Amino acid sequence: MSVPAAPTARDRRRWARYLVNERAEARVYRELAVRRTGEERDILIALAEAEGRHEAHWLNLLGGEPARLARTGVGTLLLVWMARRFGSIFVLALAQNAEGRSPYDDEPFATPAMAADEKIHHEVVRGLAARGRRRLSGTFRAAVFGANDGLVSNLALVMGIGATGVSSQFVLFSGIAGLLAGALSMGAGEFVSVRSQRELLAATEPNGFADAALPHLDIDANELALVYRTRGMPESEALDRARRIVESAHAHGSPSTYTGSIRTADSHEVVGGAWGAALSSFLFFASGAIIPVLPWIFGLTGLAAIVLALVLVGIALLSTGAVVGLLSGASPLTRALRQLAIGFGAAAVTYVLGLAFGVTMG
């Protein structure tokens, strides 16, 4: 990469902009570090210090603090504000996207080490964000996706029914019926799914069926080792563990040590309760499905009700799409627009079908 012999005024303005952004990014990481402890805090402080080294590079090129500095970008200011008040997974997800847009690859005055730093920062922040995503409960993800299902399905329903030309009371009744039917279906499906998973886990988890036989096993030729081998343990390690357990059972005359060694932790807590999952799915779906019906609930009719329903659902779809984008590490704007297109596309199909049926019946 060739470096121009003499920097221009435009170069200096660009350096000043880099300086401002590096300072702001360092501030984001320091604000996040305040809300973290242990290893995560140390990682965030190290990122802030790296941004400080980049800041020093631009200060050196500028010959000291400029008399006037460019304003910090709106996106970076938003990150600082969110980091100071929330310090959440969403800030890290946005920071990950910001690190992925580093301009230093094409910047002749940036060192190769600085460009490499930015790429590594992207991976580091991605790792921190991934930790946060793993800590998010399944209930939160279910809230986003359940509400989105309710939004799209009930919007499509009321648009299709409304396009046939029926009365506003019939549209309202159809929307409420769609809300209840969809929410009950989601709740029942989630109940069956979780209950079935718990039953499957119960059937596959180790139990105490063979505990009483332990003291009678042959230490040198016992089949307890086969149990461990079925779980993927190497033969030599399985034999060693089986010998120790049987020796202990012989010594104590009871299988007490066996129970602690052969059983695994109850994984039902990971799956969650069937009733809780069912209720959550019902409420999340209903919270989304009620939005398209609101105009008719408050007495609007005709085109005014349809337009307001589209506006309300559009805002909600953009919000859920942006959240999905943040959770997946993708662009929130892209996911928001995709969610909006899918929801409005489904509504457009049912609206056209409703118009066709309305003309035919008419």
Rank of each mutant, 00 (worst) to 15 (best):
P112L: 10
V192P: 11
A130N: 06
G299F: 04
L317V: 02
M361C: 10
D220G: 09
S261W: 00
V323R: 02
T334M: 09
S153Y: 08
A341P: 01
L310A: 10
Q96Y: 05
R68V: 15
A95D: 10
L326G: 00
A129F: 03
V307M: 03
A346I: 01
V166R: 06
W15G: 07
A203S: 15
G260L: 01
W81P: 02
R13E: 13
L69Y: 05
Y351S: 11
G146I: 00
S153A: 15
R53G: 11
A213W: 10
S267D: 13
D240Q: 06
R35K: 12
F140G: 03
V80S: 06
S102H: 11
R263E: 00
A16K: 09
S267N: 13
A221P: 03
L312A: 00
S254N: 10
H122G: 13
T230I: 10
V359F: 10
A210P: 00
S254Y: 01
E269L: 14
H268K: 13
V158D: 04
T259D: 03
S2Q: 11
A26M: 07
A305F: 04
L77T: 01
D106L: 14
Q339E: 03
L308V: 10
A274L: 14
F298T: 08
F298D: 12
S167Q: 04
A289I: 05
E123A: 15
R27A: 14
V80M: 08
S193Y: 14
A336H: 08
S287E: 04
G165V: 00
D42R: 07
L226T: 11
A322V: 01
W15E: 07
M186A: 14
V352P: 09
E22D: 13
G302H: 07
L326Q: 04
A278E: 03
